[in-house]
Amino acid sequence: DHDVVPEDKFQETLHLKEKEGCPQAFHALLSWLLTQDSTAILDFWRVLFKDYNLERYGRLQPILDSFPKDVDLSQPRKGRKPPAVPKALVPPPRLPTKRKASEEARAAAPAALTPRGTASPGSQLKAKPPKKPESSAEQQRLPLGNGIQTMSASVQRAVAMSSGDVPGARGAVEGILIQQVFESGGSKKCIQVGGEFYTPSKFEDSGSGKNKARSSSGPKPLVRAKGAQGAAPGGGEARLGQQGSVPAPLALPSDPQLHQKNEDECAVCRDGGELICCDGCPRAFHLACLSPPLREIPSGTWRCSSCLQATVQEVQPRAEEPRPQEPPVETPLPPGLRSAGEEVRGPPGEPLAGMDTTLVYKHLPAPPSAAPLPGLDSSALHPLLCVGPEGQQNLAPGARCGVCGDGTDVLRCTHCAAAFHWRCHFPAGTSRPGTGLRCRSCSGDVTPAPVEGVLAPSPARLAPGPAKDDTASHEPALHRDDLESLLSEHTFDGILQWAIQSMARPAAPFPS
């Protein structure tokens, strides 16, 4: 592969990997390779389809078979030569091979799209000592099968071997295949498990690692696999990028399955594409389908809103127990993405979901129960707010008499603000006073009005108090039968009158 990737590009890729991570280095090298001529790309395919690569990765054979028959990708048995050289000459001794072996032994695996480039050397060096003999053996194999790289107009793939297949390693990572398949204008990513390549439709969760975000852009890794992070704060999961590491605690105790298979379609829109997988259930989501939507993949363990709600429900009964003089119970939860139609709101002032922060849900004790107040519409209280300059209440639009249902020339009671006709409430011909108009209920007259088809109010509507207090003497005590009587009149003013009279009014101040 030294004929494909020059030394300066190799060093530039290593520097970019240390600065921005393996995914960015892979993407940059792939983009550079696509700008080369067809001879360089053909050399790339020839390096990929060597015999030892085909033996190690069985899924490469179907890719090789898909090439046109007129494309010669065979390799000479006596060494490598550029395709432009007409004579089959043995190339001179390859010093770059020693360079590659020494550099890969030092860096474990470079971040390139060629056999030198995919593992994360920093994480491997940190986690190597417990498994040094086995990992050293794996390093000797890295130059042979560490990076199976493929690129063409139909298929483009980048393979990364790992030393996680050490025997006896619980939940060992089998390997990473960062794979971009450009077929019919689409893009897919796969993962390699035990020599087999699994596409998103049959993606397997190998051991402790999972394909957290099938994305090839942005600074985030394709698999949430930063070796420096180790395990999740809650004892979460091992990262795919942690090559040759000792077994780590796999999943939280509440995880239903340690080796679950995540779905390959969004649980909201039932469509495929780039998904984020939940650590607590097999569901996966688009970032845009979450509520609120996320802009980037959160670091650490992530769970959907259903799993978060289940966790909150487990903690909430203990938080609601009476604990005198104790601060509110704080339950730190990872930043969760909410699927459509589901929402768990945190306290005000918290950062938005999706940031690399930890939301704190506070379970406050329930407030003391209070008697429910009568629910009145805002339009129902409008007549009470229509007060004239002299303190006389004006008529609201649409006000109707509670007896006849007519809204023409209605009066407004100064005591309960109900609309009424003087002739309907006082049919006996009582003279109307000039000021202080009161309806039949507030004036103490319980004589029913002779209106055909309208039920008369119940005599129990009024329960006047002592006459010594004029204001308190007109406080009506309405009961269920009074409400039914008012409802039978089918008037809004009657219902409003009952609601206003049912509310307690402050006692009249004593004259000074």
Rank of each mutant, 00 (worst) to 15 (best):
G375V: 06
P397F: 15
P365R: 09
A399L: 07
E321G: 12
D271L: 03
H479Q: 03
Q393W: 15
V403S: 03
P347R: 09
R438F: 11
P324Q: 11
N394S: 11
V403D: 08
D264F: 07
C277L: 09
Q309K: 10
Q393M: 14
C401N: 03
D409P: 02
L385K: 04
I500L: 03
R412A: 05
A371P: 13
T491C: 15
L290P: 14
H474E: 05
E342D: 10
D481A: 03
C278M: 15
T358V: 12
G273D: 09
H363G: 08
P282W: 15
P293K: 09
T358D: 08
R480P: 05
T357G: 12
A508Q: 11
I276W: 15
E452W: 11
P374H: 13
S441L: 02
P433T: 12
A284L: 10
E342R: 10
P332A: 11
Q392T: 09
T491V: 03
D481Q: 01
A508D: 04
E350T: 15
L359V: 14
A288Y: 05
F420Y: 03
Q393G: 08
A251P: 08
E265K: 11
T331R: 10
P332W: 15
C304D: 15
T408V: 08
V315R: 13
H382Q: 07
L487S: 01
P466Q: 12
A288S: 10
W302T: 13
V454G: 09
L290N: 08
L478F: 08
G349T: 08
S245H: 13
P256C: 11
R480S: 05
R412H: 04
H474V: 12
I495H: 00
H363Y: 14
P347D: 04
P466A: 13
P389T: 05
C424H: 07
H415Y: 13
S378E: 04
R400I: 03
L258K: 06
E489Q: 10
V344S: 09
S473G: 07
P327Q: 07
E321R: 12
E342A: 12
D481Y: 03
S339V: 14
R283E: 13
H421K: 02
P298K: 06
R303K: 15
Q309M: 11
G465D: 03
P459W: 06
A248L: 14
A456M: 13
R283Y: 14
D482N: 05
T435F: 10
G391A: 13
S306T: 12
C439W: 01
P367A: 15
